[in-house]
Every structure is written in C-alpha cells, then in structure tokens.
C-alpha cells in the first residue's frame, strides 16, 4: 500500500493533529511500512469467516431505568482547564 502526502494530510486531519513537514515525511514512511505489513492479512482467504468483534458471545447486558446519580458538577469540572458558570468553555462555535 502506497501512502501519499494526501493520505497523511487526510488522516492527520481526521485525528486532529498538526504535523510538521519532518513529521509528515516520517509518518509517510512509517505508515507505509506498517500498512504494507498489515496487507499480509490478504494472504489468507477469510471470505467464509464472520467478523468477530467480541471474543466471547456475551449478550444483553442491561441496567434498569432507575436514577442513581446526583449532582456531581464540581467533581466533573475539577479538571477543566477553563470553566465559567458551571460550564466547560470552548472558543466560539456559532457564527
């Protein structure tokens, strides 16, 4: 699998990362090696195999619809880098 500059720019954008030119070059080499290695999976025919997300067939794990939590605002905001009026703060999102 050939990894292009566009691919690196695209996956960096998806992962919300800003890469320097050096980092991009390095990522290109690394990803190309790694993805090519991943391509070895194609050596085996899996057309008759169902994808397996969970190793064990667990099913139907539920909780009942009962309120168990109270107000934990101070705890939740205790790690916030910036906060105001009981809220987390981000740069303006609406135009």
């Amino acid at each position: 699998m050939k990894i292009t500059d566009e691919t690196i720019t695209y996956v960096a954008a998806l992962a919300k990362l800003e890469l320097s030119d050096d980092e991009k070059d390095r990522a290109k080499t690394d990803l190309e090696n790694i993805i090519s290695y991943m391509d070895t999976m194609n050596e085996i025919d899996t057309s008759n195999v169902e994808p397996m997300s969970h190793a064990f067939p667990m099913k139907n794990v539920f909780r009942e619809d009962v309120v168990t939590n109270g107000d934990e605002r101070d705890n939740l905001l205790s790690n916030a880098p910036v906060k105001k009026d009981g809220c987390f703060i981000v740069p303006k999102t609406v135009e």
């Binding site: 619809d65 009962v66 309120v67 168990t68 939590n69 934990e72 605002r73 009026d85 009981g86 809220c87």
Partner: peptide, 21 residues
C-alpha cells in the same frame, strides 16, 4: 427516567452540568 448509558436523570432543564456523571 435515566440516560441511555448511565443512571443520570433525563429531566429537562436544571443548572448546567448538574445532570451529569
């Protein structure tokens, strides 16, 4: 009565971030 994945109330309104865990 509660949220989809935790035991917090779904009541409308409330001070910000007080119905959270």
């Amino acid at each position: 009565k509660t949220k989809i994945f935790c035991g917090c109330t779904t009541a409308f309104g409330g001070s910000p971030n007080t119905h959270c865990c």
